[in-house]
Write a protein that binds this DNA or RNA. Structure first.
Lengths: 179, 179
DNA sequence: AAGAGATAGTTGCATACGCAAGGAGTGGCG
DNA sequence: CGCCACTCCTTGCGTATGCAACTATCTCTT
């Protein structure tokens, strides 16, 4: 597509780079997620929330941490968890030593579904990246992206574990839905 | 998380990378834009639309192209242009040789505002990237991002042949600008 | 021990977005 | 020449999200 050499070397244009990142984010959302989302019957960004959860220790996360990671406001996250809880994929668990706090935790069904989903998701991503980046490059890009993330979205980086899960972790299932 | 030590090649974790990209996109939206958006009185992603426009030849773009670039559906873009037109930043122009098509074009006021806005925007971005990436790295990252974009969001990359806005219907004028 | 201030999460309201249907225009093909 | 399929944009409707206000809880200060 780049014909000959319209530009001497190339744009040292950061506006373009930002545009690329936004396009990629949108493209990923629209390329990777929808099949799985439709299948599970969940909404737009709910799968992102689930992925954050399944990759967290104990498959659970404080709502505020989850909100930061998923780039949602507290209110947006509350609604998302409501939706996921209605599907029995997630439930809310109180936090022993800080009764303000609430954990969102994958239910047993949620963990089952996500095991399957993550296999698909990871293989899709492997196909994508294997084809596009060679290993050294990928490492470098990831490092750069991490630095960028730490700068523009520091809250998402902070993996707080301030409130300890003093409750026996994952007493799962049964009839967990509680609002 | 990582100390700071040069890890061998650890991250074969593409899920993390995708997460980083999504966090960065959200972080950029929430870090860079809001000040300007509030000041101009525009909504969430309207500034992105304006930036796409000001960087296009003739400061105008077909609505469908703009939609692809901004990762909006046609309907979303229609509303966005409505908002921007109500602020006299953009107007709609018909296309001579295809009367289905419509251009969104920056108004004079829009161009004035965007000259100012882009100075701010670019300097913010320069501060950010100068600090975070060294030149060779930035080059490599941008290339990788472009490949990724071409793969997950090909429509955003495609630049439609400009149909002449108000001149003889024959050949086109500007060079296709590449993101 | 009490109160000020901060933090966690939920709710009401306004808005932006996507999806699907609709109307206008173009191009091909018999 | 006229029909049909396709593209471009707009509109109606449902939903997701952010903001601001509110409650509950924790923490720090006095």
């Amino acid at each position: 597509m780049d014909g000959g050499l319209p530009m001497p070397v190339r744009t040292h244009d950061r506006v373009t780079t930002v545009g690329l990142i936004l396009e990629i984010a949108a493209g990923l959302r629209k390329t990777i997620n929808p099949a799985i989302e439709k299948e599970l019957g969940l909404g737009s960004r709910d799968l992102e929330v689930l992925i954050r959860l399944v990759r967290s220790p104990g498959k659970r996360l404080r709502l505020s941490d989850l909100a930061a990671q998923a780039a949602l406001t507290p209110s947006g996250l509350t609604r998302a968890i409501d939706r996921l809880a209605a599907l029995n994929l997630v439930d809310r668990q109180g936090c022993q030593n800080d009764r303000r706090g609430t954990y969102a935790a994958l239910t047993r069904r949620g963990r089952q579904q996500m095991r399957r989903v993550m296999r698909i998701h990871e293989s899709q991503l492997d196909d994508l990246f294997d084809e596009l980046l060679d290993p050294g490059e990928e490492q470098l890009v990831t490092d750069a992206l991490r630095r960028l993330r730490d700068r523009v979205s520091p809250d998402a980086a902070a993996v707080a574990a301030p409130c300890l899960p003093s409750k026996p972790p994952t007493h799962d299932e049964g009839s967990p839905i509680r609002a």
